[in-house]
Design a protein around this nucleic acid. Structure first.
Length: 836
RNA sequence: GCCCGGGUGGUGGAACAGGCAGACACAGGAGACUUAAAAUCUCCCGGCUGUAAGGCUGUGCGGGUUCGAGUCCCGCCCUGGGCACCA
């Protein structure tokens, strides 16, 4: 023993140095052992590790280390999501360069992670801001462009005025920027899009593959976000065609109510509005309405308190089946960017249409009648949206409305008035960012040839580091002549480069695959390595990425597969997902402004990394939020000191045994047998709990074993047999706890006389025989109420249990004078006597 | 409105397949050791009642199923999250 007092700093430095020198956690392809890929979401190098990181990475490390001990070939890499806006903002503030700031932060945070003793294979470290990384991303972009999965389009976009850039739909949370909480505006811009909608169906259907592996709520959130609706598209002919346009198409989920249409509503932004009302005598009024709605704040307009408002356009469309004239209205509730921006109005069977019809005195026509009731338009107080039979619906009368949906869709198609259709809420992913610190989009604009993709062999298009950073946050790229001016790859003439960069979520959409061949230079991946390592077996990160990153990475996996870059059978990147909860302080999120930040490095200085890791895992189950407690971490520290003292004080007794090594020979007395039984039960419980990610109860089980060891050292003698039992149980404590608190466990392992790393010891195997008891405590109930307990031989048969229970004095007190009606015996558990 | 969670002591949380509710900790209380403090050790710790043994009660609320319910079923309440005038 090198020291008598537990001094975390010293031993943590020692073991971190050893793991590093001996490359303990470096991993390579090995067909002799099953592979296991455990990955935590990589951090943005913001400057310092926070407690959320510690929790996330400590969970991952326990999984990685425990799996490694169980014989898996474990890939556990770490890297940096290094592009992004904070670097630019910090650079402006601190008069430095985003690259300098980022690399300095990476160095600092890497050192902080090393101090926590995580079992990363650091040789695979990546940083997404390096050209060696993003060059492949540019290559993907070109290949997706070629495949038509990237396109450029001018459309109203989410613009964050504070970040000076556009945002994808997924990055707008409640109308606010996901990063800075500024109110997002709409701005017409020409942007690059990834066609994630082409994978809408697959992204939705493949969620089924993730069931059991992903938390249900994450699956539900993705399903909601994709938002698939099934129904039909229907064409309503314009009474007076507008130029080439002969009809207006609508999407409906209720084709069975088609005969109940009494009006149609267009979004005020609909392209046909202007030409439609041109000759209408009240055109000015309509235009004023459109103008008013257009100028409304998008958030206000989407609020559910908004009054439904509309105005008649003077125009009519014709019902596809009846030919009836249907008045064409504008409505403030119709969204221009969902469906076709036009909705058929069925007031009898849609609440919103009902309210609208009542307000503007439009007719209500019932076309679905519920069983045992007759709806009349005059007396209805709300729309009827339930099931029933179709009426007033021509040839469909009498049909149940549910099969009616399909019947109408078929009929529509036959008559070329529409067809069965689906609609998604999911929008294509806008990846253009008007910022500097990102991967350049590799396209060129030539005056002669137009838009020209950069040539693959010219990649990477390097983000120039020599730029004049601007104080207003705007990208300096458009003014960086050396970057912008280039030659057209087609004609060789003068041309300009695209100056937008890619959304940083593009980098994080494929990094997990890059780790499998992190240093390959001629290709992004190595096929053999991909096939060996992917998918990620266990992914761990915050639930805030339930939609954002996790949806993009799923999409990217499918897209890369279709580009032939991933094997064809790959469709999902993360087989199992654990979403860990937040670390709170005083019930709220830690933040500088609130002054409630708990700094991990301070905690490591004070208690040591093992204590910090232990507390993060012990405080709560991983998926739940937990409130940081200053006295709680004291308790974790106390526990480690207690283990340390046990090994110091019992040094003379402890032999270099491994867990579960002592046998239960005849020489062993009852106390020793009892300790051995507890040891095996703890190995069982802690092992099972860790596999289920119930680290808190696994640790609690080890705590119980430590308590048992403290008691046992009083009771047990110093015979070789007793020393062996004691040593085996002590070894179990170190082995079971080593994934959680590796440094102290390694140190005490070594101090116990072992040679080699505890990390290389196989996970112990418990023996069922060792857990058996001679005597059991059985609960005694009378009418389901606990009245006593009974010590009885294990394996006593039902009759013996019943007899013993009936004879028990505590039981007799409650059965006296009553008739025993029934006796329920659960062997080894309880006896319940039913009296009455 | 639709879809997911959650509700257990003073606190964090246990109870894995319906079988002794509150493991393991934190906080608190009492004691031991100590000149003293820290550290450590021992004991107590849901509520009501009782000198005690014990009794009654208790897992958001109300019902139900069962010999037996924190756990299963029905109906509510509260709460966190996602989606939402989505046609």
């Amino acid at each position: 023993m090198s020291q008598e007092r537990y001094c975390p700093k010293k031993i943590e430095e020692k073991w971190q140095a050893r793991w590093r020198e001996q490359n303990t956690f470096a991993v390579s392809h090995n067909d002799e052992r099953p592979k296991y890929y455990v990955l935590e979401m990589f951090p943005y190098p913001s400057g310092n590790i926070h407690m959320g990181h510690v929790r996330n990475y400590s969970i991952g490390d326990v999984v990685a280390r425990a799996r490694r001990m169980r014989g898996f070939n474990v890939l556990h890499p770490m890297g940096w999501d290094a592009f992004g806006l904070p670097a630019e903002n910090a650079a402006i503030k601190n008069r430095t360069h985003p690259a300098a700031w980022t690399y300095a932060n990476i160095a600092n945070m890497r050192a902080q992670l090393r101090r926590l003793g995580y079992s990363y294979d650091w040789s695979r470290e990546i940083a997404t801001c390096r050209p060696e990384y993003y060059r492949f991303e540019q290559s993907f972009f070109l290949r997706l462009l070629e495949k038509g999965l990237v396109y450029r389009k001018k459309a109203p976009q989410n613009w964050c005025p504070s970040c000076n850039t556009v945002l994808a739909n997924e990055q707008v949370i409640d109308g606010l920027c996901w990063r800075c909480d500024s109110r997002v505006e709409q701005k017409d811009l020409t942007q690059w899009f990834l066609k994630i909608t082409a994978y809408g169906d697959e992204l939705l259907n493949d969620l089924a593959l993730l069931e059991g592996g992903w938390p249900e709520r994450v699956i539900a959130m993705q399903r909601n976000w994709i938002g698939k609706s099934t129904g039909a598209s229907v064409k309503f002919a314009l009474e007076k065609p507008v130029g080439e346009t002969l009809d207006i198409e609508v999407f409906t989920t209720r084709p069975d109510t088609l005969f109940g249409v009494t009006f149609m509503t267009l979004a005020p932004e609909h392209a046909l509005v202007e030409p439609l009302v041109k000759d209408y005598e009240k055109a000015a009024e309509v235009c004023a309405f459109v103008e008013r709605i257009r100028n409304m704040d998008r958030l206000d307009r989407q609020a559910d308190t908004l009054d439904k408002e509309g105005i008649f356009t003077g125009a009519y469309v014709l019902h596809p089946f009846t030919g009836e004239r249907v008045p064409l209205w504008l409505g403030n509730f119709v969204l221009a960017d969902y469906g076709t921006g036009a909705v058929m109005g069925v007031p009898a069977h849609d609440q919103r249409d009902f309210d609208f019809a009542r307000k503007y005195r439009l007719p209500v026509r019932v076309v679905i009648q519920p069983e045992g009731e007759t709806l009349t338009p005059e007396t209805m107080e709300a729309a009827f949206t339930g099931q029933g039979r179709m009426v007033n619906s021509g040839g469909f009368d009498g049909l149940e409305n549910v099969p009616g949906k399909e019947a109408v869709a078929v009929f529509l198609e036959k008559n070329r008035k529409g067809k069965a259709a689906v609609q998604f809420r999911l929008r294509d992913w806008n990846i253009s960012r008007q910022r500097y610190w990102g991967a350049p989009i590799p396209v060129i604009y030539c005056d002669t040839c137009g838009l020209v993709p950069e040539k693959e062999e010219h990649l990477p298009v390097i983000l120039p580091l020599e730029v004049k950073t601007r104080d207003d946050g705007r990208s300096p790229l458009p003014e960086t002549e050396a970057f912008v001016n280039c030659l057209c790859p087609l004609c060789g003439g003068k041309a300009r480069r695209e100056t937008d960069t890619m959304d940083t979520f593009v980098e994080s959409s494929w990094y997990f695959a890059r780790y499998t061949a992190a240093h390959k230079t001629d290709a992004p991946f190595d096929e053999e390595a991909l096939r060996y390592w992917l998918p990620v077996d266990q992914y761990i990160g915050g639930v805030e990425h339930a939609i954002l990153h996790l949806l993009y990475a799923r999409f990217f996996t499918k897209a890369l597969r279709d580009l032939g870059l991933f094997p064809p059978e790959f469709s999902e990147p993360f087989a199992h997902l654990l979403t860990q909860g937040m670390v709170l302080k005083d019930g709220g999120k830690m933040s500088k402004s609130k002054g409630n930040v708990v700094d991990p490095t301070e905690m490591i200085d004070k208690y040591g990394a093992d204590t910090v890791r232990l507390f993060c895992l012990f405080a709560a189950p991983p998926e739940r939020d937990f409130d940081w407690s200053d006295s709680g971490i004291e308790g974790s520290s106390r526990f480690l000191h207690r283990i340390w003292r046990l090994f110091i004080e019992e040094k003379a007794r402890i032999l270099p045994l491994t867990a579960c090594e002592a046998d239960g020979g005849d020489a062993v007395n009852d106390d020793a047998r009892d300790l051995r039984r507890r040891e095996h039960l703890t190995v069982k419980k802690a092992g099972e709990d860790m596999e289920r990610f119930q680290f808190n109860t696994a640790i609690a089980a080890v705590m119980e074993l430590v308590n048992a060891l403290y008691l046992a050292r009083e009771k047990l003698g110093h015979s070789l047999e007793e020393r062996r039992v004691f040593s085996s149980a002590a070894a179990a404590v170190l082995t079971l706890l080593s994934p959680v608190t590796p440094h102290i466990c390694e140190e005490l392992w070594e101090a116990s006389g072992h040679v080699g790393h505890l990390a290389d010891i196989p996970w112990p195997v418990w023996d069922k025989m060792a857990t058996a008891r001679d005597m059991l405590t059985v609960a005694l109930q009378v009418n389901g109420r606990l009245r006593g307990t009974l010590e009885i031989d294990a394996g006593a048969d039902k009759a013996a249990l019943e007899a013993a229970a009936l004879a028990d004095p505590a039981v007799r007190k409650h059965t006296a004078g009553l008739t025993v009606r029934r006796v329920i015996v659960v062997p080894d558990k309880l006896v319940n006597i039913v009296v009455g």
